[in-house]
Amino acid sequence: MSAVGLRRSRLSNGLFVLPFVAIYALLVLWPLAKGMAISLHDHDLLSDDSFYVGLDNYVQLAGDEVFHQVMWNTVKFVLISTPIFVIVSLALALALNRPGRLGALLRGTFFCASVFSVTIITLVWKLALMPERGLVSQFLNKLGLPDMALLSSDALALPTIALVTVWWIIGLPMILFLSALQQIPSDIYEAAALDNTSRWRTLTRITLPSLSRTIVLVAVIEVIREFQVFPQIMLMTNGGPNNSTRPIVQFIYEQAFMQLSLGYATAASQVLFAVMLIGVSLQLWLERDRKGVRQ
């Protein structure tokens, strides 16, 4: 192929990806650049006044104790919920990966909660967690255990909301694991059965290695999603008690739409994006490192 023909071929190939690149730049790169620019300004939502302040917003965030608290709350929520999501959804997928009506019914039952709105889920759980009259309190009383105001405890409120979140949206990671399980060739399991391989050895030597990419995918999805936790906390505790459940997204919302400090809120959102990027990159790097060790 001549040099002219090669250039034309490259140009025509580039035209195929041009719509994607244009939409990606419009919806991702441009908002990122615009957000970074706004974070360097003192911007008031009530007026068009905007003053360049450089890194002052980031310096103020570094010394803001409330921001430190909400950042730690968010990280703690991710550390609590993500391992539970991966382990429980994988266990459910392994238990329900079988033909028959019962398996289909149970799969649908676990998945259906994820299609409900956050308003319905939080209303149901707030009623269930009510002190003295709630379903959880009555169950504890039947067992002879003391009543616990879970949503009013500084130590227990965030783990309680994490468990509610897992109950609510466990369906999606479960379906991802089910799909991956059904892609594993049945011949491998038949060969393992002929060799009288135990269930535990089959799980650890065949199933889990075959699911490694899906495990990473689920973990990354949940890290990204749980770093953006907001509505269930807003509706269940409004960040209380004593800011013990207040996430960074609520902090950004309050700074932007209640304090009307758009530049400061945007700086906080840039910090959130950087933390999410670091967390996901670290997760992918650790998984790649494990693969390199196994090879």
Results as ranks from 00 to 15, higher is better:
V4H: 10
R7A: 14
R8K: 13
S12P: 00
N13E: 07
N13V: 01
G14E: 00
L15D: 02
V17W: 10
V17L: 13
L18H: 04
P19R: 04
F20P: 05
F20G: 11
V21N: 00
A22W: 08
A25H: 13
V28W: 10
W30R: 13
L32M: 12
L32T: 08
D44H: 03
D44A: 14
L46G: 02
S50T: 09
Y52V: 15
G54F: 08
D56P: 02
Y58I: 12
V59G: 05
A62L: 15
G63H: 00
D64K: 01
F67K: 00
H68G: 07
Q69V: 11
V70Y: 03
L79G: 14
L79D: 07
S81E: 07
I87P: 04
I87F: 07
A91C: 09
L94R: 07
L102F: 13
L102P: 02
T109V: 08
T109R: 03
T109I: 10
S114R: 05
V115H: 02
I120Y: 15
A128M: 15
L129W: 07
M130A: 15
P131D: 05
Q138N: 12
L140C: 09
K142T: 14
K142C: 13
G144P: 04
P146C: 08
D147R: 01
M148S: 05
A149V: 01
L150C: 01
S153D: 10
A155W: 08
A155E: 15
I161N: 07
V166W: 05
I169M: 14
I169N: 14
I170N: 08
I170K: 09
M174K: 11
L176P: 06
L176Y: 10
L178E: 05
Q183V: 03
L194P: 10
D195C: 03
T197K: 12
S198M: 02
R199C: 08
T202D: 13
T204E: 08
P209E: 07
V220N: 07
V220I: 12
I221Q: 11
R225K: 12
Q232T: 08
I233K: 04
M234E: 12
L235Q: 09
T237G: 03
P241W: 02
V249D: 01
F251M: 06
Y253W: 11
Y253H: 09
E254H: 00
Q255E: 14
L260Y: 14
S261T: 00
T266K: 11
A268I: 03
L272F: 00
L272M: 11
F273V: 13
M276E: 13
G279S: 15
L282K: 00
L282V: 13
E287D: 13
R288S: 14
R288Y: 04
K291Q: 04
G292F: 02
G292H: 06
Q295C: 04
